[in-house]
């Protein structure tokens, strides 16, 4: 396993109708379905990015979880800080893939939506984060059967050891039908939580 002397500077969770950062609850709305919940969270967290409403569910989830972490870093300096993004999930872009498939299933009513089609890749959510925060950095999206702290830690350390990034946002962002979960963390020189498999797993399960 590759090793570096880096730290988890901050982390965020979006799950069970809650948004939290570093274990502190930022927003909760227990009674809402995902579309209403994420819209309410967007408003409550003062996100101020109207293109959010054009995104698919996976991108909204990833975007908001990342925004919570990146808000603390001035966007004008993001390029210089070279923040890479390494995300993963299980369902890929299946939620949007199904919507696209439904729009092309009937040859007599064949009107696929370009706005849906553009989200039929899971890594598009990284693009949405990068556009908002002006990141021009390395990025990767992996599909796993389950959350893999080891793979994320190894890949992140590889980026650092090869001088491909000064900071890395890593994590898991998964959306499929009625289930969703986001866990993102920012790895840098700052912080008190060592960046390793054990700590990533611990924070994921918080």
């Amino acid at each position: 396993m590759l090793k570096t002397n880096k730290f988890i500077q901050s982390y965020s969770h979006i799950r069970n109708n809650t948004v939290s950062k570093n274990g502190t609850l930022l927003f909760e709305n227990a009674s809402e379905a995902f579309p209403d919940f994420i819209k309410a969270a967007y408003n409550a967290l003062d996100t101020g990015y109207p293109k959010f409403f054009k995104m698919d569910n996976l991108s909204k989830l990833a975007f908001l979880a990342a925004d919570v972490l990146l808000k603390e870093i001035p966007s004008a300096t993001n390029k210089e800080q070279n923040i890479a993004i390494v995300l993963s999930n299980r369902a890929s872009s299946l939620d949007t893939d199904r919507k696209h498939q439904a729009s092309i299933a009937n040859k007599e009513d064949y009107f696929p939506s370009p706005a849906v089609f553009v989200y039929t890749l899971p890594n598009i959510c990284i693009g949405e984060i990068s556009i908002k925060h002006r990141l021009f950095s390395e990025n990767s999206f992996f599909i796993f059967d389950r959350f893999s702290a080891e793979h994320l830690a190894d890949y992140t350390n590889g980026l650092f050891l090869n001088n491909k990034a000064e900071k890395v946002i890593g994590g898991w962002v998964d959306f499929d039908t009625d289930t969703y979960e986001a866990f993102l963390y920012l790895v840098s020189d700052k912080g008190s939580i060592p960046h390793n498999k054990k700590e990533i797993n611990r924070l994921y399960r918080l």
């Binding site: 054009k54 009107f111 696929p112 939506s113 370009p114 706005a115 553009v118």
Partner: peptide, 9 residues
């Protein structure tokens, strides 16, 4: 540009 494509559809 994606909106433009939506309008065409």
């Amino acid at each position: 540009s994606i909106d433009a494509l939506e309008l065409i559809v």
